[in-house]
Simulated scan of single mutants.
Amino acid sequence: MEILVLIVHVLLAAAIIGLVLLQQGKGAEAGASFGAGASQTVFGSTGNTGFMVKITALVAAILFATSFALAYFAKERAMSVSEVGIPSLQVIESAAERAQELPALEIPRSTSSGAASSDIPTAD
């Protein structure tokens, strides 16, 4: 089911790109007022503007629906992996247990001048 939704999603994305590219810009309507022959179009005297806008809106709505479906599938997959695999809480607890098993670092003792002997310079 997820593969089918993904294929439909990709096809809808390509369709919406094509529909947007096929539409005329706002400046294209200025030529129609000077007798560019807009009354002889296939879609009527208003041209294809209303038709293309409605189809684009429909494709965009379906694209959003497939986006939500893919997000739902991704959430379900993440939930099933966390139940089967190692949950993050167990990883944190095991790291805390291993940290207690590590040997403690020894703090260098101070020298006669009162400063700790180390390779790190100090500001005096």
Rank of each mutant, 00 (worst) to 15 (best):
A65T: 03
G50C: 00
A104L: 11
M1G: 13
S110Q: 10
V91N: 08
L63Y: 06
V8Q: 04
M52I: 03
L21C: 09
S118A: 09
G27P: 00
A69N: 01
S33W: 08
H9E: 01
E101G: 03
V20S: 15
K54Q: 11
I86W: 02
A32G: 04
I16E: 03
S110R: 13
A116D: 00
K75H: 09
Q40T: 13
G50E: 12
K26C: 00
T122Q: 05
V84W: 08
L58D: 08
A115W: 10
L102V: 13
E106F: 06
I3D: 14
G25F: 05
G31K: 02
A123W: 12
T41V: 04
T46H: 14
A61G: 12
S33I: 06
A30F: 13
I86K: 12
A57R: 12
A78E: 02
E83N: 15
Q90L: 12
E83Q: 14
A65M: 08
L102Y: 10
K75R: 09
E106W: 04
L63K: 01
L70A: 05
E76M: 11
R98G: 04
V59Q: 00
A116E: 04
S118H: 03
P108T: 04
T111W: 03
I16M: 08
Y72H: 12
A14E: 03
E106V: 12
S82M: 07
I86M: 11
E97S: 14
G114N: 10
A96C: 01
T46D: 14
G47P: 01
T66E: 02
P87E: 09
T122F: 13
G47Y: 02
S67G: 15
S88N: 10
D119I: 04
I92M: 09
E97Y: 06
S39H: 11
A14T: 08
L63A: 04
G114Q: 07
M1H: 13
V59F: 15
Q24N: 13
E101M: 09
S94R: 15
E101A: 14
L102C: 05
I86P: 02
G47D: 05
V5D: 02
T41Q: 15
A95H: 08
E101K: 15
A57I: 13
A71C: 06
A57D: 09
L6T: 03
T111F: 02
V59I: 14
F64H: 07
T46V: 04
S67Q: 06
A74W: 00
R98C: 03
S94T: 15
A61V: 13
P87H: 10
A65E: 00
V8W: 00
Q40F: 11
E97R: 15
A104W: 06
G18M: 09
I120V: 12
L89D: 14
L6F: 03
I55W: 02
G27Q: 05
H9F: 12
I17G: 11
E2K: 11
N48P: 06
V10G: 03
S112Q: 11
I7R: 14
E83G: 08
S88W: 07
G18K: 09
N48L: 00
S67I: 05
T46R: 11
P108R: 04
S113C: 02
G47K: 02
P87S: 07
A65Y: 03
N48S: 13
T49N: 08
L102S: 08
